[in-house]
Design a protein around this nucleic acid. Structure first.
Length: 575
DNA sequence: CGGCGCGGCGCG
DNA sequence: AAAGCGCGCCGCGCCG
């Protein structure tokens, strides 16, 4: 297997940008000096990129990945490496390790919102940078120079360059995931909907929802009770003697009344119907593929977000609709308890890493005697990373503090920094945003001589809120970096798999790369690869090796495992 | 009428 | 009424 590198200390960089209606490509050497410059028509670009890709596979530098890569993918061209100026700008701009920014922070035109594929939203959006970052070659060259200089002078150039490369690989993958799509069996989805919700009759709600609604109204003794408006439902519940303060499920469950069960069922069915019902199916699934819009770094911690389609919230109930094409399979893998393992590695906490040695980190904590049961170990650890102070979780955290002082010190310190208005950074250097002006103003006002008790209370609470955010930021953000490193390595390994003699029933439509094993889904700590059956073992090996490689890339030889739950299946429901 | 905030719930 | 992080989407109801 050829070695696959995520790092960016490598050969040729080629900057793409526009000028006078044409495309300009500039080759740079390792020091960033211009070596060659050519002009192309937009129509000639894909073929030229493909030639360069097979000749010397440069790192492609561009203002925004979807703005260039969607068209290349549509032309059947895939690239291996990129540098996304918009995404890297945001990292460098906020990074605490960047001390001399070489004018980068003043280049406000790069503070742009992500362009949404296929979206026309920018048309009426008069926001300052609604049009996205500048795509001309001069701007791209200038911004790249600022970024390279700022990174070179930063306190942690290696880590930040790695983050830039991983972030950009993620941007490539986000386009590829959308182009390939997640194989989705619309008839299986329809069957689940009909099974769960009942048949649709006329223009009304499905049968089982109507039945539930009737049972709820009967139990309330109110044949016209409105169930979809919280105020109306709350009043109806009160009239029936159910004295709840909200209509949320966890509160309803605490009451005994004939209305409770059918009401909870009604809400469950309505949720499925409205969020992932037939309307969703018609809008988001085409030609057997679900194509969500992924938004790399859409979350401040560096996690991806999604826009439209709810890619990050597909209910487990519908997983059976995720089905491989005939003759193909799904290789599904997720990391067991990623965030506590990340915490152990970041803190160099060998005791926690030892507990994480096996498959089940929580069982490992119990085995060490830190906490009596698995359930308590889990809630305590989540509480530690989320900043729980009360309840079961808050009560258990002190025991964790005794057992794993290094890990706990790391998150406690991050919380304290956040409470004081400071910034914290992930392992590779992504830095939390500064508190907004209102937060800072309320803190200083509360510490003044003329502050009221209510001011102090409120300021204290918002300080603690921010502490919980920064506490979680370092762990969630570093977990996102590990996942990016995993993905970046995996997509290169998959692309490097040799062709087998006979492809099984490769889909005739869709991009060329999707006729070979390819990533089809990604969600925080889980991936799905869609592959011909004959590739199953090779893909599983790639997935495992990439995970091991990501651990080494971030944490060197620190002994922490990132075990995968991996399965090769026809349908995601079997997992 | 569209925009927005909220409650609620799906996901990690 | 959430204790304890991060998201997106739905329907409702209010506002202009």
């Amino acid at each position: 297997m050829t070695s696959t590198r995520v790092d960016s200390a490598d050969g040729v960089w080629t900057v793409l940008g526009r000028a006078d209606g044409r495309v300009v490509a500039v080759d740079l050497d390792a020091d960033g000096r211009e070596r060659a410059r050519i002009e192309l028509t937009a129509a000639a670009l894909p073929r030229w990129v493909a030639e360069r890709e097979s000749a010397d596979a440069p790192r492609w530098v561009w203002h925004d990945t979807p703005g260039w890569y969607d068209a290349l993918l549509a032309a059947g061209i895939r690239v291996s490496k990129a540098h996304d100026l918009r995404l890297v700008h945001a990292i460098v701009r906020d990074a605490a390790a960047v001390t001399e920014d070489d004018g980068l922070r003043r280049a406000r035109e790069w503070d742009a919102t992500p362009a949404v594929p296929g979206g026309e939203a920018a048309l009426f959006d008069l926001g300052e940078h609604a049009a996205g970052p500048p795509d001309d070659i001069a701007s791209a060259m200038a911004e790249l120079a600022r970024q390279r200089a700022a990174l070179a002078r930063s306190r942690t150039p290696g880590a930040l360059r790695l983050l830039a490369a991983a972030e950009s690989a993620g941007a490539l993958l986000a386009c590829e995931l959308r182009a390939a799509g997640l194989p989705w069996d619309a008839s299986a989805h329809d069957a689940i909907l009909r099974e769960t919700l009942g048949e649709r009759e006329g223009g009304g709600l499905p049968a089982r929802i109507q039945q539930c609604a009737a049972e709820v109204r009967a139990a309330l003794g109110d044949p016209t009770a409105g169930l979809d408006s919280h105020p109306k439902l709350l009043r109806a519940l009160h009239r029936a003697g159910v004295l709840v303060d909200s209509t949320s499920r966890w509160e309803l469950e605490r009451h005994e009344h004939p209305v409770i069960a059918p009401l909870i069922e009604y809400k469950r069915l309505m949720r499925l119907y409205t969020a992932n019902g037939w309307a969703w199916l018609a809008e988001w699934v085409r030609d057997g593929r679900f194509r969500p819009v992924y938004v790399p770094a859409g979350v401040v911690t560096g996690r991806w977000a999604s826009s439209g389609g709810g890619a990050l919230q597909i209910p487990r109930q519908l997983r059976a609709a995720v089905r491989a094409d005939p003759g193909w399979c799904l290789v599904i893998a997720d990391v067991a308890q990623l965030e506590p393992r990340i915490l152990a590695a970041m803190a160099r906490d060998t005791a926690l890493a030892e507990a994480a040695r096996g498959r089940d980190l929580y069982a490992g904590i119990v085995a060490q005697g830190a906490l009596p049961t698995r359930a308590e170990a889990k809630v305590a650890l989540l509480g530690a990373m989320y900043g729980a102070t009360t309840g079961d979780s808050g009560r258990l955290v002190p025991r964790l503090r005794r057992a794993f002082p290094r890990a706990m010190r790391l998150v406690d310190e991050a919380a304290r920094t956040g409470e004081d208005g400071g910034a914290v950074s992930t392992w590779l250097g992504r830095t939390s945003p500064p508190p907004d002006a209102a937060w800072a103003a309320s803190q200083s006002q509360a510490s003044g001589a003329d502050a009221e008790d209510t001011d102090r209370t409120r300021a204290r609470r918002s300080a603690r809120d921010r502490g919980r955010f920064t506490r979680n930021f370092i762990v969630q953000g570093t977990a996102a970096e590990w996942a990016l490193a995993w993905l970046a390595d995996l997509r290169l390994r998959l692309a490097a798999l040799p062709d087998v003699a006979q492809h099984e029933a490769a889909p005739r439509s869709g991009p060329a790369f999707a006729r070979r094993p390819h990533l089809a889904f990604y969600l925080h700590d889980e991936i799905i690869v869609h592959a011909p059956l004959s590739y199953a073992d090779a893909v599983a090996t790639c997935v495992r090796e990439s995970a091991a490689s990501a651990g080494r890339l971030l944490f060197g030889d620190f002994p922490v495992d990132f075990p995968l739950d991996l399965s090769v299946v026809e349908s995601a429901s079997a997992k």
